[in-house]
Amino acid sequence: MSAEPGPPLPQPITSVKSPFRMDYTYVAGAGRSVFLRGLAERKLLARRCPGCSQVYLPPPEFCSRCLTELEAPFELDGRGTIATFCVVSFPFPGQTIEAPYVVAHIHHHGADTRLMHLIGDVAPDEVRIGMEVEPVWVGEDQLTTSMTSIRHYRPTGVAIGSESTRA
């Protein structure tokens, strides 16, 4: 027992830094890799379930409803409609795009699932559900096995600025 009176107790601190940093390996898996490799060639590859005929974009390796392996990949032309969207207006750590910007679920023609990507070349307040969009690919030297091979989707048939986007 500390009998002798020592110096007064220190003033308690209220928090400690508790940082974690962890390095990982991401394994895309067989199905996802087919899709990502397609992106590096400007191709949107979809696959159909032989059981329920659902067409997946992006396609996994097997149907998550029937659990059967999907059929061989085939290319879609990239056009689709906006199924739903939101306008991101707030900043957050790690943000790489200047707000405000539009993120949408895009229902590609010929696919039964929706793919999430950015909507560009249009003012956020002009974006509508049901609007037809198409991918804007990055330059040849920037194409890679990543969603970043598509810069964003833009409306088809709508003239924005000086550039007409109708095919």
Partner: peptide, 10 residues
């Protein structure tokens, strides 16, 4: 499969 390194920080 494709694989790639990445880092998570908290």
């Amino acid at each position: 499969s494709l694989s790639a390194p990445y880092t998570v920080e908290f």
